[in-house]
Nucleic acid binder design. Structure first.
Length: 423
RNA sequence: GGAGAGGUGGGUGAGUGGCUGAAACCAACAGUUUGCUAAACUGUCGUACGGGAAACUGUACCGGGGGUUCGAAUCCCCCCCUCUCCGCCA
């Protein structure tokens, strides 16, 4: 959520920058300012009435003490009058507030000036390519054939137990997953991240604070009995650790890493290109989250980008990094890098990580602030990224490491897997 | 799930209708003093919105919502949460 003060001060700039996200904010922003004006007027009027009431109440108290109870009646009547008037403004204020909230929540984050313009993934800008190891040619089976061949991931049984998109990992398939999770966590800890294990279900307030609600309502599994949501990413519970808090500037940056299972309904996105591990309802992911001061958030973003690139290098996977264009970015992000690994079996790029700076957009909803050296309070900046999402990494690893003898395990994972070959 | 107790500022905790945005203590921060550390002393020390160049000032907030009253942290109702005991249980 953008800050009201910013919208008021830089109205033209806000509208202009939103165009990059293909969002015409002219009307909404206008409405926001209109309702904020009403809000302010009502608030002011209400404050004045209440100040009068407070003064009278004080007076009455003094009169009582002096034993002049009879003199209070006129004053009491006056307060009754003020109260009726105040009620009017209260209703007005409440209505304006509600409108304002509804409107503010509909405005996406401003894209960073460096974001390329465009409508879809086609307009994203490739900013880095490390694809030298893409094999020139050869016969590569797609991962869905490999997992059947070696019987390491079982979609049929998963479908029986739960439904499609909930596979069962078996034997070396399960152990490979566990190895990857541990590898990712250890790497993050070595890079200065603090590990947390968050809840897998969150309440509506948390889902709202990170921006999943209201705009991605249908994408989360929702337990109606207790009104809880299964997390679509650890970003939600981990970022919410900091909801409603004021951090000391010397405690920043906060760097957290969390492993969690992630649950996504993926409503409406089933079709081609979702075979095998490409898109699941439940998957594992290790997520990194940073909270930092505004001046350093883009530095933190680059640091996270380099960190994720390092992971992919260690896994010996060809990858590229794309900077998302305005039209392809998420509602909450100011700048996003997507990481894509090459799937040799499918002959296409698979997104395995998304690293974003949300600037103060999430903080504003989270009420996540910090106190600077002078005791002034400001909104912090939040960032997060996958490091990494498992299923597509597994898919790419299986495909690129296939040999006639079996699937070889990349060097860095051998000690984690405690086997060297899937055969 | 049943019974009881309780939710006050960063923490402990006083406050049961007006002089309480809230005592006291601790922590934190700044300063004084001491050869350093420590101690002692002095001062500062909630958030949001509005007004003001600023000093400062108005309003709201004592788990959340509603009510009684001229006036509520304090009384009443509903909800949420925490703790203790019992039951159930990985």
């Amino acid at each position: 959520m953008l800050q009201l003060s910013f919208i008021r001060e830089k109205t033209a700039e806000v509208i202009d920058r939103l165009k990059l996200k293909n969002f015409d904010g002219t009307q909404v922003i206008g409405e926001i300012i209109r309702f904020d004006d009403i809000r302010r007027e009502s608030q002011k009027a209400l404050d004045e009435l209440q100040a009068q009431s407070n003064a009278i109440a004080k007076e009455i108290g003094i009169l009582f003490k002096q034993g002049k109870a009879s003199e209070t009646n006129a004053l009491k009547e006056k307060t009754a009058e003020l109260k009726t008037k105040a009620k009017e403004f209260e209703i007005k204020l409440e209505a304006a507030r509600k409108e304002l909230d509804d409107l503010l929540v509909r405005v996406p984050n401003l894209p960073h000036p460096g974001v390329p313009s465009g409508r879809s993934a086609e307009d994203n800008e490739i900013v880095q390519s490390e694809d030298a190891m893409i094999p020139a040619d050869g016969e590569y089976l797609p991962h869905w054939e490999l997992i059947t061949k070696y019987d390491i991931i079982d979609f049929v049984t998963g479908t029986k137990i739960t439904g499609s998109g909930f596979p069962v990992y078996k034997g070396k398939g399960a152990r490979l997953q566990r190895a990857l999770v541990n590898f990712f966590l250890d790497q993050a800890i070595a890079a200065g991240y603090f590990e947390v294990q968050p809840p897998y279900m969150v309440n509506a307030a948390s889902a709202f604070a990170t921006g999943q609600l209201p705009d991605k309502d249908g994408q989360m599994y929702h337990d109606l009995t207790d009104d809880l949501y299964l997390i679509p990413t650890a970003e939600v519970p981990v970022t919410n650790i900091y909801r409603d808090s004021i951090l000391k500037v010397q405690d920043l940056p906060c760097k957290n890493v969390a492993y969690s299972a992630c649950f996504r309904r993926e409503a409406g996105s089933w079709g081609k290109d979702v075979r095998g591990l490409n898109r699941l309802h439940q998957f594992d992911k290790v997520e990194i989250v940073q909270v930092t001061v505004p001046e350093k958030s883009y530095h933190a973003l680059e640091e996270m980008r380099e960190y994720v690139a390092g992971l992919l290098r260690k896994l010996e996977l060809p990858f590229r990094i794309v900077k998302l264009c305005g039209g392809d970015m998420s509602f909450t992000s100011a700048l996003t890098y997507d990481f894509e690994v090459w799937s040799v079996g499918q002959k296409r790029w698979l997104e395995v990580s998304s690293v974003s700076n949300f600037e103060a957009f999430q903080s504003n909803r989270l009420k996540l602030r910090y106190k600077d050296e002078n005791g002034k309070i400001h909104l912090a900046h939040t960032l997060n990224g996958s490091a990494l999402a498992l299923p597509r990494i597994v898919a790419a690893l299986l495909e690129i490491n296939q040999t006639p003898e079996g699937i070889r395990v990349p060097e860095v994972l051998k000690s984690y897997c405690r086997f060297e070959m899937i055969n």
